[in-house]
């Protein structure tokens, strides 16, 4: 059985092959998958799972998720997109979600950075400040 370490190394190599200018090229990803499925090397399913994980993490890094209590108006979306792009560069995938629990405001997540300007977030911060000795 092929070792996990070897599979991880191979998956990383394939992932690097899919990069173009620091970004994942979708057609290359598809090409890699087609090639692996055609060749069927030892442990190819585990290799594909590992490869998928790397692609998923890359997509997560390049995804901007906006959560609001009510649907966001188009003009505000455009303004936000402009400002976030200025900071994180172009090529972000945008996702919008409506979460009434947030009460009001906006929560933006880009990669592992989170900007919380929701009322729910402020209330939680306030509650935490009371908890602290």
């Amino acid at each position: 059985m092929i070792s996990h370490r070897v599979l991880r190394r191979e998956a990383k190599r394939l992932y690097r092959l899919c990069l173009e200018g620091g970004r994942v090229n979708e057609s290359r990803v598809r090409l890699v998958i087609d090639h692996i499925l055609a060749q069927r090397p030892r442990g190819h399913i585990r290799l594909l799972i590992q490869f998928q994980r790397l692609i998923k993490l890359d997509i997560q890094r390049r995804t901007a998720r906006v959560e609001t209590a009510v649907p966001m108006p188009e003009d505000l979306q455009a303004l936000l997109r402009e400002q976030v792009t200025r900071r994180y560069g172009t090529g972000l995938h945008w996702e919008y979600q409506v979460k009434p629990d947030l009460i009001g405001g906006l929560r933006l997540r880009v990669g592992s950075d989170v900007y919380d300007a929701t009322i729910q977030g402020r209330l939680m911060a306030l509650a935490e400040s009371f908890d602290q000795p």
Binding site: L106, S112, D113, Y115, A117, G121, L126, S129, F130
Partner: peptide, 16 residues
Amino acid sequence: ARIAGAKTAARRQNVG
């Protein structure tokens, strides 16, 4: 004072 101290601006946090 506690309410004033609680940050009202959007905070950048690193999450996982």
